[in-house]
Design a protein around this nucleic acid. Structure first.
Lengths: 197, 197
DNA sequence: GCGAGTATAGAACGATCGTTCGATGTGTGC
DNA sequence: GCACACATCGAACGATCGTTCTATACTCGC
């Protein structure tokens, strides 16, 4: 039933708030279902679609699709996500940003040396560890035992690191350039309550 | 006991894997405690320290400190997450950015009117639908049947929308301002293979 | 070596879990 | 209007939950 979508949304909200699922009876209360068997039927449906899973202890856990979001292009009129089922352009932000989880690290950005590239202090860089990068890539390098996020460039003298802020000079590594990884994404969270920026 | 730290780590790993807690008996198995009362004692200790909490149904849920991130700060030497076991990435990016899943929409940013705020075309805005916003917030408003991302401001004449790019003029809504939501986060993906930018 | 304090084991308890069944209600198509 | 499908209800079931209690091992300081 299409009602299921609304039920799922409530479950997702509950999970976002508590990071845990309520028991069937609790789900019933939450959703306005007075019988646990109704909940069981709902759960079975959501399970088939991959939103929920069960632990060996018969408890509920989020399924692969539980965290999916639909990406809305800025449409002309009407609201985003208008097409409920047409374009299934939905996936998890993690899946979207992180291709190789085991090699990926999150690093908080310090300093404003990359503001012109749209990277502000406090942002979180999604860094994939590697020793290969091409000129033009945003990289995290190790300079003077410090991590630094810069754009990799190359001239006739060799590699160098370019800030994206005229107030900072380019860095030309003495000796070899020690690369930590390449930046594959950026995350920024705006504090609703004055947390972040 | 100092053993607790190791127990907590195992619990965090389990939670990261399943996004849910096992029952007491399962915790016992996981940790090598043969008695549920041992688990109960451990849980009580971890609860006092704020790592765990209990739902009204007497189930476990993560406490405020459970997700304390060792989000690799730019350290002096060595690598981030150097300590193999100290680095727990137990919170997903989705959970980090999205507080109210049912009210949250992803919208791709078009145009460069917000570049000075570090928001580039192609970035994805995490938008929480609401009709309330405060001056200073980044908002998605509906102007001329188009979505537009601007900073909300207010002067003696009323609300207006400020771009973050000198090439664009401020927008003063005729009549009332139609708000779609507030921007709670930004995601950017750098295409390794020429996907994005 | 011995007592104090703590961590664990083990068993018993009522409460609550998720499952299952048949009955009731609601909607759609013929 | 009637039959069919489906969602929900309400009650019963055994299984498992978390709590609690007492008894046993361990670790110190002296």
């Amino acid at each position: 039933m299409s009602q299921d979508a609304a039920y799922l949304a409530q479950l997702q909200d509950y999970y976002a708030r508590h990071r845990v699922f309520p028991p069937y009876s609790g789900i019933g209360e939450l959703l306005g279902l007075r019988s646990k068997s109704s909940v069981a039927a709902l759960v079975a449906r959501l399970r088939l679609e991959g939103y929920l899973e069960a632990t060996p202890d018969r408890r509920l856990k989020p399924g692969p699709r539980f965290f999916e979001r639909t990406l809305a292009e800025s449409v002309r009129a009407g609201f985003p996500q208008a097409a409920d089922d047409s374009a299934r352009e939905s996936l998890t932000i993690d899946e979207f940003l992180i291709e190789h989880p085991s090699r990926t690290v999150l690093v908080r950005v310090k300093g404003d040396s990359m503001v012109d590239a749209g990277i502000h202090p406090g942002d979180i860089a999604v860094v994939e560890r590697t020793h290969m990068a091409r000129p033009g890539d945003l990289v995290v390098a190790i300079v003077d035992e410090e991590f630094t996020l810069k754009r990799l460039a190359r001239d006739r003298e060799g590699f160098l690191l370019l800030p994206a802020n005229p107030a900072y000079p380019p860095i030309r590594p003495k000796g070899s350039l020690e690369l930590f990884g390449v930046v594959v994404g950026i995350i920024r969270k705006y504090g609703n309550n004055g947390t972040g920026k």
